[in-house]
Design a protein around this nucleic acid. Sequence first.
DNA 1: ATTAGTCATAAGAATAACTTATCATAATAA
DNA 2: TTATTATGATAAGTTATTCTTATGACTAAT
Lengths: 301, 301
Amino acid sequence: MTNLTLRQLRYFEALAHHGHFGRAAEACAISQPALSMQIKELEGSLGIMLFERRARQVWLTGFGEEFALRVGDILRSIDELDELTRASRDTLQGRLRIGVIPTIAPYLLPTLIGNLNQMNAGLDLHVRETLTPTLIQELAEGRLDTAIVALPVSEMSFSEVALFSENFVLIRPGADEGKPVPDRENLRDMRLLLLEEGHCFRDQALSFCNIQSVQQGLDASSLSTLVQMVGAGIGVTLLPEMAIAVETGSACVSVSRFASPQPSRTIGMIWRKTSPLAQQLLQISEVVRQSAVTLREQHNA
Amino acid sequence: MTNLTLRQLRYFEALAHHGHFGRAAEACAISQPALSMQIKELEGSLGIMLFERRARQVWLTGFGEEFALRVGDILRSIDELDELTRASRDTLQGRLRIGVIPTIAPYLLPTLIGNLNQMNAGLDLHVRETLTPTLIQELAEGRLDTAIVALPVSEMSFSEVALFSENFVLIRPGADEGKPVPDRENLRDMRLLLLEEGHCFRDQALSFCNIQSVQQGLDASSLSTLVQMVGAGIGVTLLPEMAIAVETGSACVSVSRFASPQPSRTIGMIWRKTSPLAQQLLQISEVVRQSAVTLREQHNA
DNA sequence: ATTAGTCATAAGAATAACTTATCATAATAA
DNA sequence: TTATTATGATAAGTTATTCTTATGACTAAT
């Protein structure tokens, strides 16, 4: 048993509906014998008659009626499966697990989530905020669908697309407002406050200053803390552009741009090359890019 | 679209479960390429990837998970369909529409319904009580599955089985108790009360008396009424054996058997020769026969 | 008695599904 | 690195299923 087919169920439903082999067959776009055979096959494999055939009419047996009710439900479920598929084919639906580094997440996500939800009704967004190495591992293991990180990541098995680049600005105590902006050489002699080990932004800042490491045990766990420390006069720090609006609102600090070439980093999106979502992730990346643009415009306005 | 098959869904479920083409194929008792092809076919017809394939692992995409949930429900429904079928194959389940003539129904049905329900848990019994011509028509039109009537019905398109025969007894006013039992010739001269036109029992009674019709407009609509009329001294009547216990309980009437050969009729069951229920109806007829036997024994005890 | 309507059956053609053999790729081991 | 192993994809050919057309059988209506 259990070799009944959806085809048989569809033919069965048609015959139950039309009560006439010829017309049911026509409705199924097949010949009458083809339908007769499938019905016969179905009844044979079930071991029960579904229809009573009489000279000029065909009707369901009692069992056939019960059967028809269930078959109707099943075929409707199959139809829904089709609808679900059609709805998901182009626009991404369902779960999307996205990882974001901590120096991007708090600033970009509010806008991004808003944009994604607006464009994509059926999206179930799971956000993971953690350091790049963890994101890379979880992405590789299939526990994330994509991640927003600083490029490059240089993983052979990942695709990456650049989204935007953001400059770094200098944050000094409020009292330093108006003082000349130091260049990278001078910066090395100032007390530069940094994020904890593991944050890519720490490495990017160090790299700009051409130093390998700093000795003092004052590393902060968030940009927000860094800015507070600068406000307290403990030292200076760098901030990615995107964080300025949020982080310097309340603290009394001075924000200065560096002379060209300004330090910067490139933010991009990565996913497994094998990911079947590649197509849609590329679309998503466009939304992310647009969210960053919107954010910047809001800031400048 | 819409040419996805149950086979594909079963293979899909197996692969989703095992996460491994080879083992899933083994579980489906097919070769690995066969499964690969069906999955590929499925994904192709859907237009979406269901699995992400990597070197040593295969997992569901987000859409695939949603898909799997629904597919699981559908396959379980199909399994239930099988169970329903297995349960219905031998013992009659579901709706059974049975017609019974009015001179049998009130006496036989209580016992019969009890027996059927006892033997047959899943039986949804619909009883129709009306005159033989109506029963025959509704049976022919497929609005009944079977009927219990007096034989013969002589319809070419019906099968009939005899169930039992029952004698007719004479019902006279209580005061006639002990008087000699008239034979059919004498009976013709007594005031014989009958059911309305259309009742087969009316014709059977007339036939026994060798008369075509009676003139008086005193026809009753039920045996119960007839007995009440006899009790009131209006005349005499005949009663089928099965009705005696119920109908003569309260009225003050005399019950007498005729001399051999006693008048009688044969009760049988009929159904369309084309009915797929034939097999089971034959079983049902055995239950009806047994119910009549039980009834008679109760009466004689 | 003949005709028309309807479903079943038969034979052969077209499709679909499967099997075995083989290839390609990537992770593991040497 | 290089060889090995595990695993899924592909190709070619076979088998099974499903379809079509032609025809038969039965029954109701003319």
